[in-house]
Computed example of a mutant assay.
Amino acid sequence: MLLFVFVAIAGGFLTGSAMVSFGWAAAVLSAPLGGSLCAGVAALVIMRLRGPADQAEDDTDAQTNVMVAELRGILSQARCEEPELPEAERVARRA
């Protein structure tokens, strides 16, 4: 994320210096647009280098299955460790 900030700042300076020949107002107004454009291009380049989803579909399915199994294990342990309630409290909780 910090990379995008530096690219945007550098792009803004470069755009402003290129547009200064058209006047200071044009340079000041075009610098933010050029910086944003450069940050967008950098984001697209990084997205292209990382691949479509950074992982294959099978990898995310496997990770999800492992996480669900772990959560179910924790839930079953939590259910087993509950103390047995007296009959009066069980009836009161059902109502």
Rank of each mutant, 00 (worst) to 15 (best):
M1E: 09
L2M: 10
L2A: 07
L2Q: 08
L2C: 07
L3G: 09
F4Y: 10
F4D: 01
V5W: 11
F6A: 11
V7G: 01
V7T: 05
A8P: 03
G11S: 04
G11F: 00
G12V: 02
G12K: 00
G12L: 02
G12W: 01
L14Y: 01
L14N: 02
T15N: 02
G16A: 05
S17C: 09
S17D: 12
V20F: 06
S21A: 14
F22Y: 14
G23A: 05
G23S: 04
A25E: 13
A26D: 10
A27P: 01
V28H: 08
V28L: 15
V28M: 15
L29I: 11
L29R: 05
S30F: 03
S30V: 06
A31L: 00
A31H: 00
P32Y: 02
G34V: 01
G34M: 00
G35T: 01
G35K: 00
G35L: 00
S36P: 02
S36T: 07
L37I: 10
L37M: 14
A39Q: 00
A39S: 06
G40C: 03
G40M: 03
G40Q: 03
V41T: 06
V41A: 12
V41Q: 03
A42Q: 02
A42E: 01
A42H: 02
A43L: 07
L44A: 12
V45T: 12
V45E: 04
V45F: 11
V45I: 15
V45H: 05
V45R: 08
I46Y: 06
I46N: 08
M47N: 14
M47P: 02
R48G: 06
R48C: 05
R48M: 08
R50D: 10
P52E: 10
P52A: 13
P52M: 06
A53M: 07
A53Q: 08
D54A: 12
D54T: 05
D54M: 04
D54I: 04
D54N: 05
Q55T: 06
Q55P: 01
A56D: 12
A56W: 07
A56Y: 09
E57N: 08
D58K: 06
D59S: 07
D59C: 03
T60P: 00
D61I: 09
D61R: 13
A62C: 02
A62D: 02
T64Q: 05
T64L: 05
T64S: 03
V66D: 08
V66I: 13
V66H: 07
M67D: 05
V68F: 05
E70S: 12
L71G: 04
R72N: 11
R72H: 07
G73S: 11
I74T: 11
L75W: 07
L75I: 11
S76K: 13
S76Q: 14
Q77G: 11
Q77D: 14
C80D: 15
E81C: 13
E82S: 10
P83F: 08
E84S: 07
E84F: 04
E84N: 10
L85H: 04
P86Q: 09
E87T: 13
E87V: 14
A88M: 10
A88E: 14
E89Y: 11
E89M: 12
E89W: 11
R90G: 04
V91L: 15
V91E: 15
A92C: 07
R93I: 09
R94S: 14
R94A: 15
A95H: 12
